[in-house]
Deep mutational scan, measured.
Amino acid sequence: CHSECLGNCSQPDDPTKCVACRNFYLDGRCVETCPPPYYHFQDWRCVNFSFCQDLHHKCKNSRRQGCHQYVIHNNKCIPECPSGYTMNSSNLLCTPCLGPCPKVCHLLEGEKTIDSVTSAQELRGCTVINGSLIINIRGGNNLAAELEANLGLIEEISGYLKIRRSYALVSLSFFRKLRLIRGETLEIGNYSFYALDNQNLRQLWDWSKHNLTITQGKLFFHYNPKLCLSEIHKMEEVSGTKGRQERNDIALKTNGDQASCENELLKFSYIRTSFDKILLRWEPYWPPDFRDLLGFMLFYKEAPYQNVTEFDGQDACGSNSWTVVDIDPPLRSNDPKSQNHPGWLMRGLKPWTQYAIFVKTLVTFSDERRTYGAKSDIIYVQTDATNPSVPLDPISVSNSSSQIILKWKPPSDPNGNITHYLVFWERQAEDSELFELDYCLKGLKLPSRTWSPPFESEDSQKHNQSEYEDSAGECCSCPKTDSQILKELEESSFRKTFEDYLHNVVFVPRKT
Rank of each mutant, 00 (worst) to 15 (best):
G125I: 01
L212M: 08
L279R: 09
S208M: 03
L392C: 13
K162Q: 14
G152Y: 15
W322G: 02
Q339I: 08
Y191H: 12
L108D: 01
A144P: 03
P288K: 04
N255E: 03
L186D: 10
L204K: 01
L201F: 07
S398K: 01
L252R: 07
G139Y: 04
F299I: 13
T323A: 13
S119Q: 02
Y355T: 00
S274A: 07
W286V: 06
Y380A: 02
P336I: 08
C228I: 05
C261G: 02
T127D: 09
F365Q: 11
E156D: 02
T185C: 00
S158V: 07
G313Y: 05
T215V: 13
S401I: 15
T185L: 08
R176Q: 14
Q306L: 05
G159S: 03
N340M: 03
F299T: 12
S171I: 01
K337L: 06
G256D: 03
L298Q: 00
N307P: 08
L172R: 00
R138I: 03
L153Q: 13
F220L: 08
F175V: 02
C228F: 03
E187I: 03
E109G: 12
A303R: 10
I163R: 01
Y191K: 03
R347S: 05
G139R: 12
R244E: 03
P304S: 05
E111V: 05
Q216V: 14
P284E: 10
S260E: 10
D367L: 07
W352S: 09
E246K: 15
S269T: 14
G125F: 15
L331S: 11
E283T: 08
Y300D: 00
T127Q: 07
S173E: 10
P287N: 02
D393A: 07
K226T: 10
G313D: 15
L147N: 01
Q216S: 11
L186H: 14
S333C: 07
T361F: 15
D328F: 11
W352C: 06
S119E: 04
D315S: 10
L186N: 02
L279D: 05
D384Q: 02
L161Q: 00
A251F: 07
R370W: 12
F358A: 07
S116D: 14
A168R: 15
D315Y: 13
G183P: 02
E148Q: 10
S208N: 11
T371Q: 15
R281I: 13
P351Y: 13
S239W: 03
L331G: 15
L294I: 07
N190S: 09
N263M: 10
T386G: 15
Q199W: 12
F174Y: 14
Q203F: 02
N387G: 15
K277N: 04
Q216M: 13
Y223T: 04
K253P: 10
F299D: 01
A356N: 01
D115F: 04
S400F: 03
L201P: 00
V325C: 09
Q216L: 11
C261R: 02
H210W: 04
L293R: 06
S321P: 07
K267Q: 12
D257K: 02
I154Q: 00
N136T: 15
N224Q: 07
N150M: 10
Y167I: 13
L201G: 00
W205H: 08
I157W: 00
L265S: 11
L133H: 00
R124Y: 01
H341N: 11
S269I: 10
R281A: 09
Y380M: 03
N142S: 07
A144C: 03
N211Q: 10
A374V: 09
S269H: 07
M235L: 14
S171T: 09
Y300R: 04
P304E: 15
T386V: 08
L294H: 11
L212P: 02
E109V: 08
I378C: 02
E236K: 14
T273C: 14
D312P: 15
K277G: 11
L153W: 14
P411A: 04
L362E: 11
G152T: 02
T213E: 09
I157Y: 00
T113A: 13
P225E: 10
C228Q: 03
A120S: 08
R244C: 08
A316R: 10
G343N: 13
E148V: 09
L331A: 06
N320I: 03
R176C: 04
I157F: 02
L178P: 00
L293H: 04
N141H: 05
V325S: 13
M297A: 13
R179D: 08
I114R: 00
N255C: 09
K301E: 02
G240W: 03
V238G: 15
S260G: 09
Q203I: 12
S166K: 00
F299S: 01
S401T: 08
D377F: 03
K253A: 08
D206T: 06
E122P: 06
R179A: 09
K242W: 15
D393G: 04
K253D: 03
N320R: 04
S401D: 03
V381H: 02
V390R: 12
L143R: 03
G295Y: 07
P330S: 13
N340Y: 10
K209T: 11
N200R: 04
T213Y: 04
W286G: 14
E368W: 09
Q245M: 15
L293T: 08
L123W: 08
S166Q: 04
I214K: 01
I114V: 06
P342R: 06
L298V: 15
G159H: 02
D289S: 09
W322C: 00
R247A: 09
D328L: 11
H341E: 10
A149C: 08
N248L: 11
H341I: 05
G343L: 04
G348Y: 02
F311A: 12
N387I: 07
E184M: 09
T213K: 11
W205Q: 01
T185Q: 06
G318S: 15
L392D: 04
E146A: 11
T213I: 11
G110Y: 08
Y191I: 13
Q121T: 08
L204S: 05
K267W: 07
L294E: 05
L294F: 12
C228N: 02
K301A: 06
D393N: 05
S166E: 01
F220S: 08
A356R: 01
K209G: 10
I135V: 13
G217W: 00
P330G: 03
E368K: 10
S208Y: 12
P394M: 03
W344V: 08
E187R: 11
S173M: 12
E237A: 08
K177Q: 10
G295P: 06
R244I: 05
K112P: 02
N340L: 11
Y300F: 03
K375L: 14
V170T: 10
K218R: 08
D115M: 02
D115L: 11
Q382T: 08
T254W: 13
D292Y: 06
S396A: 15
N211S: 07
L108G: 14
A145E: 10
F311V: 07
I188D: 15
N198E: 00
L266W: 01
V104P: 03
F221V: 13
S274I: 07
L201T: 03
L153K: 14
I395A: 03
F174A: 11
S171N: 13
P287F: 08
S239T: 14
S400T: 07
T309S: 12
Q354L: 08
A374L: 06
C261K: 01
T273Q: 07
V308N: 01
L298A: 11
D206Y: 09
Y223W: 15
S239F: 03
F290I: 02
Y167T: 12
Q216A: 04
F193V: 10
P336Q: 11
